[in-house]
Design a protein around this nucleic acid. Structure first.
Lengths: 148, 148
DNA sequence: TCTTGACTTAAAGTCCACTTTAACATATAT
DNA sequence: ATATATGTTAAAGTGGACTTTAAGTCAAGA
């Protein structure tokens, strides 16, 4: 059983953020003792899920939607299932994109290493198709988070 | 050689966004023909890198810093190398976190599948430690993007 | 010629996710 | 007893990344 400050510290967020989350309805059912928030195991379980949803940039509104569905009970199971599936696919796509970015940065790492060795960037620029790691040439089209 | 609208379409962003990027200095050296922006191969190369930097949520200011260093020439090679390394490590950490989130969502997928089969959530809740995929129990502490 | 569409700039507006402030209550330590 | 720390709420403020608006230029087609 923890009070807000301890929870905030554990999560690496501010107390204001936790209060804001509660206000927005994405941190529901927090019990009060003498008007003071007390977080229990259930709350921590949800915080772990919330953490994931925030990590993938789900808007607060969307998270709220999910909670509202959950509050309605078994009748919304399928809807929640689809929402979760959708987000799962989104994460997968996201990881793929980040892996591409990682390659780009690994190329840059090699680029600068080589340039530093040579003392000048010009040396690397004149090596055509010189990258050991970079093969991607197209720019992926941006898909906005709010679309999902 | 493309004009702004075509470029915007290719990238999946608005023309306003591209103009805004140029204004903020993260889309430098775009040539004009009769006052109209014309994007060349060099610009596309940079757009691919920019795309990666945006993908990992590098703030515009930080991207600008990188560009400013690049503009200064060979004297900033080491600094740029370190910036890139830092970002590379950040992406790696990010991918690791997303993989954890993926697990969480895969667990939820299983959870809802099972609940739907049973017709009620209660059935799943009463299976203790029932998850086939979820082992993580702690909530990762949030590290804010601006710290890097 | 005139309208349509694509371009330009500068400035103001919007949205989201917090963050800060102010005013107050309660609890613990010296 | 009194200072310090932590908690509370409601409301206003902030920062970042665009987005929209307004006013204008220019080129091609009917």
């Amino acid at each position: 059983m923890y009070k807000i400050k301890e929870v905030a510290k554990m999560l690496g967020v501010s107390t204001a953020t936790l209060r804001y989350y509660e206000q927005e309805g994405i941190l529901p059912n927090i019990k009060r003792v003498n008007g003071i928030r007390v977080f229990n195991d259930e709350d921590f379980k949800w915080l772990r899920v919330l953490n994931c949803m925030k990590k993938i940039n789900m808007p607060i509104k969307k998270i709220k939607e999910y909670i509202d569905l959950a509050m309605m009970g078994d009748s919304t199971l399928k809807e929640r299932y689809h929402l979760i599936l959708e987000q799962k696919e989104f994460i997968k796509a996201e990881i793929a994109k980040l892996n591409n970015c990682l390659k780009e940065f690994e190329y840059k790492e090699w680029y600068y290493k080589t340039a530093i060795k040579a003392g000048t960037e010009a040396a690397v620029k004149n090596m055509p198709k010189s990258s050991p790691t970079l093969e991607i040439d197209e720019i992926p089209v941006k898909i906005k988070r709010k679309d999902l």
